[in-house]
């Protein structure tokens, strides 16, 4: 049985509709969303309402949290003053546009969703703001999955889809007791763990403009990254019509994310 995992929708309604259509065409009914329904994009209420109507289980993303809490978006994750100012503008715009009902919906989203051996989070099991990058240190990556007691950790936030297998892992523990020479050692072999990043539906960061998501076969454990074309012009027009900065449309149209990724993307916001 296949399940689809979508993430980082960023208020891009045409992209969300195209991805849901692609999922439907494959006969998949089991969908999980990893959050960031809003932020930068022009149709936050429409995207939230679509996800709510379809009753898609959804985790809270960093933008969802920031918009609801009335906090500024995580400033320390902005790579530049320019990105920060653009982010703050988008944050304020989104906060002003969202209905109270939709804010309440975002506020009540869980940080994580567990389904058997799979854990679904926005950033990492530690924080919605932590980036699990495809090339992060293998030990740190394994630690995130193992501590979350998951076999497969589904995440988003980086906007870069990837599948990372962590094979032949082990944990060695060495304890020196008070008595001299009384040293105990133990090594635990770990089964293969995986981190699957679903990429982004509404703000891709894979060098192209297509929306991405993943399909996981729960029987064979096979994971496929899917890319979906959508009506980019429609989204760009909606950005301009909504009064958002035209540079957002230009960046999206050219396959660049709205705001560049932080130089130290591995940081965890400790706000």
């Amino acid at each position: 049985m296949n399940q689809a995992v979508i993430s980082c929708l960023h208020a891009n309604l045409p992209a969300v509709e195209a991805v849901l259509k692609d999922i439907e065409l494959q006969g998949i009914t089991n969908i999980t969303c990893l959050g960031d329904l809003v932020g930068y994009g022009p149709q936050p209420n429409e995207v939230i309402e679509l996800i709510r109507d379809k009753k898609i289980p959804t985790c809270q993303g960093c933008w969802d949290e920031d918009v609801v809490d009335g906090l500024d978006a995580c400033d320390c994750s902005y790579p530049s003053q320019l990105a920060e100012k653009r982010g703050h503008f988008a944050h304020q715009w989104t906060t002003d546009k969202l209905t109270k009902e939709n804010k309440d919906y975002l506020a009540n989203l869980p940080y994580s969703i567990r389904k058997d051996k799979c854990l679904f989070v926005h950033g990492s099991p530690n924080s919605q703001h932590e980036y699990l990058l495809p090339d992060m240190d293998a030990f740190a990556a394994l630690e995130r999955v193992e501590n979350a007691r998951a076999e497969i950790l589904f995440c988003g936030h980086t906007h870069q889809p990837y599948i990372r297998e962590l094979a032949d892992g082990s944990i060695a523990v060495k304890i020196k007791n008070a008595a001299p020479k009384d040293i105990q050692e133990k090594e635990i072999q770990l089964p293969m763990r995986r981190i699957v990043n679903a990429g982004s539906v509404g703000e891709p960061r894979h060098g192209g403009t297509k929306a991405t998501y993943v399909v996981h076969n729960e029987v064979t454990n096979e994971v496929k990254i899917r890319e979906v074309e959508y009506d980019l012009e429609l989204t760009c027009k909606a950005i301009i019509d909504a009064g958002l900065p035209p540079i957002f449309a230009w960046r999206l149209k050219n396959g660049f994310e709205f705001a560049e990724q932080a130089e130290d993307a591995s940081h965890v916001c400790e706000r």
Binding site: S80, L82, A83, R251
Partner: peptide, 15 residues
């Protein structure tokens, strides 16, 4: 701001 300059120049010369 150096990082902002980098972004601005990239956007400028790319249209």
């Amino acid at each position: 701001d150096p990082a902002s300059l980098n972004t601005f120049w990239f956007e400028l010369v790319n249209g």
